[in-house]
Simulated scan of single mutants.
Amino acid sequence: MTQPFDAAIQAFAPALPLAVGLSGGADSTALLLACARRWPGQVRAIHVHHGLQAAADGFEHHCVALCQDLNVPLAIRRLDARPAPGQSPEDAARQARYKALDAVALGRQAPEAIKSIALAQHADDQVETVLLALSRGAGVAGLAAMPAQWERSGLQWHRPLLQVSAADVRNWLRAQGHSWVEDPTNTDERFTRNRIRAQLLPALEAAFPAFRDTFARSASNAAQAAELLDELALDDAQVVGTPPAIQLLQRLGRARQANVLRHWLRTQHQTTPAAAQLHELLGQVAACTTRGHRIHIKVGRGFVVRSGLHLDWYSHQVLLP
């Protein structure tokens, strides 16, 4: 019988050459090993040294030794991933990591150009992401969690292990006789993900043994719903215009107004309104029935204001006449 890990690798069909994001942990070590065996000579590894903890040097040494053993070229990027004020350490590290992966992959010249990047998040990671989204009151885009594949900057990105549990990944790696580096922060329950992993996942396992599969289906359903909402927002944006005309917005139902405004703010201004901010903005749009009605609301990282017959957004506070 084919094991879940082997089945996932057999189903994985990336464009080659392929780069694997290699942290040195069990998941990325297993993914690199499996890909290097399946596509010899077509796989590269990229390791990002975040510079955030003393153990990071040990991760790098493991990656160097592993890639030498597999005869896989390794690119190492060292960076300062300390968070900005108000930014979580996890978010800062994630954003810095993606930038580093992009830089390495896009920096290669043909015929060595990397066409795909594989990341090693697994089914447990997906469950944690869904639970985090639920705890924050996320909409369908947040509940869609992590996509299995997407394109960005001309690269194909893949997460081939999203249907494989953490235990199955480690069992497979042990069977190959390979070791990995355990991040000491993984047991630090000051981090929300670690509390979920230590406290919630065992309870879910006991109550709902198939929870990984059912959570994955829910995330997939949410992703489809989010795609439909994006398509509807594109259609409505054609009607209300960019920036949106207030009177045309008022002809839409409240839910469609919210959807197209979120789309406008995200795509045109790279900002996301909080639920309370969007609620206030919708109320002001509904009340805007006279020439003198003013709108000036903090939304996302800036301000939505009325500008004549339209809404506009500024990254700074503006003085209204």
Rank of each mutant, 00 (worst) to 15 (best):
R94E: 09
Q121L: 06
W313M: 07
N194Y: 00
A167M: 03
A92K: 03
G154R: 14
Y98N: 06
H61C: 12
A275D: 14
H47Q: 06
D69S: 12
Q156S: 13
W172N: 03
L320E: 09
V20F: 05
K115P: 03
R266F: 13
A210N: 01
A138E: 11
L320W: 04
A226L: 06
A207N: 10
W264S: 04
I76C: 12
G25E: 04
D124S: 02
S28V: 01
P73I: 10
A110P: 12
Q176D: 08
R97L: 06
S135M: 14
D124T: 02
T290A: 15
G283C: 11
P202M: 03
Q10L: 12
D102H: 13
K99L: 14
L229E: 04
E60T: 13
T192S: 15
N221L: 13
E231T: 04
R217L: 13
T192I: 09
G107I: 07
R266G: 13
A75W: 05
H316L: 14
Q199P: 10
Q250E: 08
L281C: 11
A225E: 09
Q156I: 07
Q10C: 08
T290L: 15
F12R: 04
T290V: 12
I295H: 09
C67N: 05
A166H: 00
L70Y: 08
E205I: 00
V240G: 04
Q176E: 13
Q42W: 06
D124Q: 04
A233D: 07
D230Y: 02
H122Q: 04
D213F: 01
L74Q: 09
P85A: 07
N194A: 07
S23N: 04
D168S: 04
D183L: 13
R197D: 00
G139S: 09
Q126N: 14
S307R: 15
L248S: 10
L161K: 02
T272V: 08
A81D: 02
A105F: 07
K115I: 05
L106N: 13
A118L: 10
Q224A: 15
H47Y: 05
A245L: 10
M146E: 11
T129L: 10
G142D: 07
G41C: 05
A113D: 07
A56W: 08
G302P: 04
V305W: 07
S165I: 02
A65V: 11
P111Q: 11
P209Y: 01
H50L: 12
T290N: 15
A237C: 07
D57E: 12
R212C: 04
P4A: 03
S165K: 01
L261W: 02
L319Y: 12
T289V: 15
L132G: 11
P184V: 09
H61G: 14
H61S: 15
A93L: 11
L173I: 07
A120M: 02
L265H: 00
P273A: 03
I46F: 07
R190L: 11
P40C: 05
L229N: 03
R291H: 14
G24W: 05
G21L: 02
S116M: 08
L265N: 01
A166F: 00
R159T: 09
L18C: 03
P83T: 06
R306A: 01
R291M: 14
L131S: 09
R193S: 08
G25V: 01
R159C: 09
L143D: 10
A55M: 06
T289L: 15
T214Y: 08
R78H: 15
L32T: 00
L261K: 00
H316W: 14
A55G: 06
E205V: 02
R291W: 14
